[in-house]
């Protein structure tokens, strides 16, 4: 019973880790993406830089995913 509860909390923690970091990345990306599109509309040469800037907040999701994987497979 206790083991099942612990497994449930671990799963919940893993879900929160990925979910919240995903939301955070999304909030960050909305402005960066809009600005990148704006810059690209004026000068297509910004495509590479714009794409790079837009995916930078994605790194936080990777951290969330790592935390989730540790929770699921290490504990």
């Amino acid at each position: 019973m206790v083991a099942a509860e612990a497994a449930g909390f671990i799963a919940l923690g893993a879900g929160i880790a990925v979910g919240l970091t995903g939301l955070g990345a999304g909030i960050g990306e909305q402005s960066i993406g809009a600005a990148a599109i704006g810059a690209m509309a004026e000068d297509p040469k910004f495509f590479g830089k714009g794409l790079l800037m837009t995916v930078i907040p994605e790194s936080i999701v990777i951290f969330g995913l790592v935390v989730a994987l540790i929770l699921l497979f290490v504990f």
Binding site: Q30, G33, A36, I37, G38, E42
Partner: peptide, 22 residues
């Protein structure tokens, strides 16, 4: 303000790019 920010991000990126061309 969270939803207003992208609208400003887009237009300000465009005007800054345009200002560079002046």
């Amino acid at each position: 303000g969270l939803f207003k920010t992208p609208a400003y991000a887009y237009i300000t990126a465009r005007v800054r790019a345009r200002k560079r061309k002046l």
